[in-house]
């Protein structure tokens, strides 16, 4: 199938891109690895595209004030190759090889994934686990939204139509941060059947757990976090956390019922937790 017709604007500055987003009923084109398939399948038909790929200054990773700032147009391949990401956001480095395939990672961007909010994508869950902030901007100004308040539903976020995700900011990981990541997939690089990302302090006083591919959006599992935080993280506490997953509003799909999703989430949590404790 061929994409329906649209107007195409190639923005070269952020200001120009924001102006176009304000004027037009436009979709932002980032890496295009999700938007282009949807257009080619005629599942979506934007009136106009604002291409962000030539916008200066939207890509790149930098450290400031104990925060790791990742430009929205930073491609997954660049994140994978980044020593700063490996050092300051090891969860992201750990998860990246599981995201799709090399050719997709060569184009796909962190901002695009964030703005799309695919419930099965890894990145939104990573951002939840890491306590990230999403930086948004429109012609009127800039604002920042915590990841916890950003992902609102199925492909639904706190972003307004005229806003662009311009950056993602993460707290720099302490050297002793514990992480765990596990996803259950039938084929390498597929969207998962269930996935879990965990960030914890060394003493387990703080634990953040997020799931993907089990609900209509990436979700925090706060009751499970509470079951593990401040404990020794042993088998009994872990099973309490697994039991606490009933807090999640599980959503089945054609390959797994809601009940199966619930089960697989527990498996993913156990396996990710084993990495946390390793």
């Amino acid at each position: 199938m061929k994409a329906p017709d649209f107007d195409y604007h190639r923005a070269e500055t952020l200001e120009a891109a924001l102006a176009l987003m304000a004027e037009e009923d436009a979709f932002a084109l980032a890496g295009g690895q999700s938007l282009m398939p949807m257009m080619n399948l005629r599942l979506t038909a934007p009136e106009a595209l604002v291409d962000l790929n030539a916008v200066d200054g939207l890509a790149g990773v930098r450290i400031e004030d104990q925060r790791l700032t990742i430009g929205a147009m930073t491609r997954y391949a660049a994140l994978e190759a980044s020593g700063e990401v490996a050092e300051h956001a090891p969860l992201v480095s750990t998860a990246l090889p599981y995201i799709a395939h090399p050719a997709i990672r060569n184009r796909g961007t962190i901002g695009g994934s964030c703005a799309l909010a695919d419930p099965a994508a890894e990145m939104p869950a990573l951002l939840l686990a890491l306590g990230a902030e999403v930086h948004l901007q429109n012609v009127k100004g800039a604002r920042s939204v915590a990841a916890d308040e950003f992902f609102l539903g199925l492909y639904e976020t706190a972003r307004e139509d005229d806003e662009l995700v311009v950056a993602i900011q993460l707290p720099v990981a302490s050297k002793r941060q514990r992480i765990g990541f596990h996803e259950i997939t039938r084929r390498h690089g597929d969207y998962a059947m269930a996935g879990c990302a965990i960030v914890a302090t060394e003493d387990l006083s703080e634990v953040r757990i997020a799931f993907f591919a089990v609900s209509d959006r990436a979700v925090r599992a706060r009751a499970a976090e509470a079951a593990l935080a401040g404990t020794s993280g042993g088998k009994a506490e872990l099973e309490n956390a697994v039991a606490a997953l009933s807090e999640i509003d599980f959503a089945g799909d054609m390959n797994a019922s809601t009940h199966t999703k619930r089960h697989l989430a527990g498996v993913a949590l156990r396996r990710a937790w084993a990495e946390v404790m390793a």
């Binding site: 295009g32 690895q33 282009m36 080619n40 291409d51 050719a103 997709i104 060569n106 184009r107």
Partner: peptide
């Protein structure tokens, strides 16, 4: 034409990409 099969993979600016997912 939805980026899954890899048949259109080619090189753009030194990186291998899906040719069907780029205008």
């Amino acid at each position: 034409e939805h980026g899954v099969c890899g048949a259109c993979t080619l090189e753009v600016n030194g990186a291998m990409v899906r040719g069907c997912l780029m205008l």
